[in-house]
């Protein structure tokens, strides 16, 4: 299936959870927030939440700024 991740198309196996996506991208769940279809996902749900087809996923973290 295809989702949008940070504005780019990404192919995922059907049934991929948030935890699965973060692992695939080698991202530390502690320092990233996941927004799915404009809703912030509670980290407690990462293991259970299966990403739907066409999901708009945003992965956001702190960067340098003033």
């Amino acid at each position: 299936m295809i989702i949008s991740c940070n504005g780019r198309e990404r192919h995922l196996q059907a049934g991929t959870t948030v935890t699965g996506l973060l692992a695939e991208l080698q991202l530390n769940p502690q320092t990233v927030v996941v927004e799915c279809n404009k809703t912030i996902i509670d980290p407690k749900e990462y293991d259970a939440l299966v990403l739907p087809e066409d999901a708009q996923v945003e992965l956001i973290r702190f960067v340098g700024g003033g």
């Binding site: 991740c5 940070n6 504005g7 780019r8 991208l25 080698q26 991202l27 530390n28 502690q30 320092t31 990233v32 945003e58 992965l59 956001i60 973290r61 702190f62 960067v63 340098g64 700024g65 003033g66």
Partner: peptide, 19 residues
């Protein structure tokens, strides 16, 4: 210190100010 919020750069996933 101030920090900004941005999308993770998927090309450079280790660029993480919190680390």
């Amino acid at each position: 210190v101030t920090v900004a919020l941005r999308r993770v750069d998927l090309e450079d996933p280790d660029d993480d100010i919190m680390s």
